[in-house]
Amino acid sequence: MRKLHVISIQKAYLDIVVNQLVEIFGDEIELSAITLQELTMDVIAEQDIVILSKEILKGITRPFIPESCPIIIAKREVNIAATKDLYKLLNGQQILVINDTMEHAVETARSLKSIYFEHDYIAYDPMNLMPSNINWIVTPGEKELVPREFENVIDIAPRTLDFKTVLETAKFVKSEMGQISLMNRFYKSQLALAEKWNDENELQYKKVLVQQADKRSKVEDRKEKYNSLAVETMRSIIDKIEEHGFLEESLAILAVYKEAKGDFESFGRAKVKLKLRDAGITFSDQQLRLRLEILQEIGLVNARQGRGGTKLSDKGETFLKQHNEVASNEF
Rank of each mutant, 00 (worst) to 15 (best):
E28N: 06
Q20H: 05
K321E: 10
V173P: 00
K3A: 05
A81C: 07
K315H: 10
W197K: 08
A303H: 10
L4C: 01
E168R: 03
P158I: 00
L90H: 12
K113N: 11
Q305F: 12
V50N: 02
K315F: 08
V43M: 15
S266Q: 02
Q296A: 08
P158W: 01
S228K: 14
G92R: 04
I65G: 07
N91L: 13
L290S: 07
M183E: 11
I29L: 05
E249A: 04
I65E: 05
A213E: 06
K273S: 04
M177V: 06
S114D: 11
Q190S: 05
H119N: 09
T108P: 08
A255S: 05
A123G: 13
H119Q: 08
S189L: 00
K271L: 06
D125E: 14
D85S: 15
G92P: 04
I294C: 02
L274Y: 13
E249P: 02
A303D: 11
I49S: 04
D199G: 08
G308S: 05
V22Y: 13
G299M: 02
E38M: 12
S114H: 09
V6M: 03
M177T: 04
P126L: 03
G26M: 00
F331L: 12
V153Q: 00
K75D: 14
R307D: 09
D278R: 07
I9C: 03
D42C: 05
K207D: 03
G308Y: 05
I24T: 02
I241F: 02
E168Q: 06
S8R: 02
V17S: 05
S114V: 08
L36N: 02
H244K: 15
S217C: 11
F117H: 15
E330R: 14
A109V: 06
F150E: 04
Y257A: 01
D314M: 13
N302K: 09
Q10A: 14
E151W: 07
Q212T: 08
A74M: 07
F331H: 07
L209R: 09
G306L: 11
L31G: 02
D239A: 12
D162P: 01
E176K: 12
M127R: 15
E195W: 09
N79K: 02
E325S: 05
V17D: 03
I7T: 03
Y187M: 09
A170H: 00
E265G: 10
T35D: 00
G262T: 05
E77V: 13
D155S: 03
E293Q: 09
S266A: 07
E259T: 02
I56K: 14
T160V: 13
S68W: 06
F267G: 00
W136R: 06
L203D: 03
V43F: 13
R235D: 14
S228T: 13
A230I: 15
P131S: 11
I253M: 10
Q20N: 06
A255W: 00
I24K: 01
M102D: 12
D263R: 12
E242T: 09
I122R: 15
R304M: 04
E330C: 11
S328H: 14
S8Y: 04
Y121F: 11
D15F: 12
H5A: 10
E103V: 14
A327R: 15
G316R: 00
T108V: 11
K206T: 07
G308A: 09
L4Q: 01
Y116T: 07
P158Q: 01
N128P: 11
Y124S: 10
T310D: 03
A303I: 13
R277H: 10
I73H: 05
N184P: 04
I294M: 07
R307Q: 12
S53N: 04
T282N: 13
Y257D: 03
I44N: 06
